[in-house]
Design a binder for these strands. Structure first.
Lengths: 152, 152
DNA sequence: ACCAAAAACAGAATATTTTTCTGTAAAAGT
DNA sequence: ACTTTTACAGAAAAATATTCTGTTTTTGGT
């Protein structure tokens, strides 16, 4: 499962644009179609390549507000954690949720239309969860960088 | 540029899997190829569809540590901010960087192999930036949710 | 209400891309 | 040294995207 330099080149290209054709890639790395095809299939099978997705413009979809929620639970038990995790998975506004170290238990990233929708989300969806004790909100004022590209 | 229900169905599918074929989509929403093709092209032209990317498994690539960095700048001036922003764009470990409200100025998300690499990143790449005054690190213990899918 | 224009769609033809197949050369294992 | 495996190239086949033609529906204006 070790990646050689050719695998890395392929992954670097595909991370940037999932619509590069095999020919595009083959040309860029000076190979024929066959090895490129075989390697991509292997990378998919091995799960290095997780999936191909389409990224949409959140603002053009009307999502003009991004916030981080720092959530503290009522208890730090397994059951409490699991209950919270399950609830979060059903909330589409929550695009990231991580259990973290520090002064709070979870860091959430929320993408939502505006302050009014956030108010509603906060009051009716998040703070109502029985596991939630405290929510500290950090508002994003300006996005500097956002990438799905991992360094290889 | 208003999206009708058909556009939304197409976007919902493409968000999940950029490799759905036009035929796949056409079947799922009971249309022929032509309207699906035309709509996708329009959504691309209008920038609703931003790009198609490949998501890789960060752990299989050896990135076993995710951290949030809460950064405070030395000054809140425009020049300081811009200088910091530019530096961040060149750091591949930083996958998110947002200017935020609250007790600190920036929230960063860092994906990195291990604690040792984070130590190096913190000491040699982040804290050395002239605009940086304070760094508070929040370690991710466990990832609960991470999605590129926006609610439509 | 009527007409012209535009938009949305279906089906077929074409071009491009992916996938499979065949074979060769290099590398690895015994 | 020999076999097996791996990596690759080129070509054929299959699948997909793109373009073209034409019909129906919708829209906007009079």
């Amino acid at each position: 499962m070790a990646l050689d330099e050719i695998d890395k080149k392929i992954l670097r290209l595909l991370q940037e644009d999932a619509h590069y054709t095999l020919k595009d890639i083959a040309n860029k790395i000076n190979l024929s179609l066959t090895p490129v095809h075989d390697r991509v299939k292997r990378l998919e099978k091995d799960g290095i390549i997780e999936k191909y997705v389409t990224l949409l413009d959140k603002k053009k979809l009307g999502n003009n507000l991004t916030v981080y929620c720092q959530v503290t639970l009522t208890k730090q038990t397994y059951d409490t954690s699991e209950g919270f995790n399950q609830s979060i998975l059903n909330l589409p506004e929550v695009v990231e949720c991580n259990y973290v170290s520090g002064n709070f238990d979870y860091m959430l990233k929320i993408i939502i239309p505006d302050m009014e929708s956030y108010h509603h989300f906060h009051q009716k969806k998040l703070s109502v969860l029985p596991e939630v004790s405290l929510i500290n909100t950090v508002f994003v004022i300006s996005e500097v960088k956002s990438t799905t590209v991992l360094p290889i």
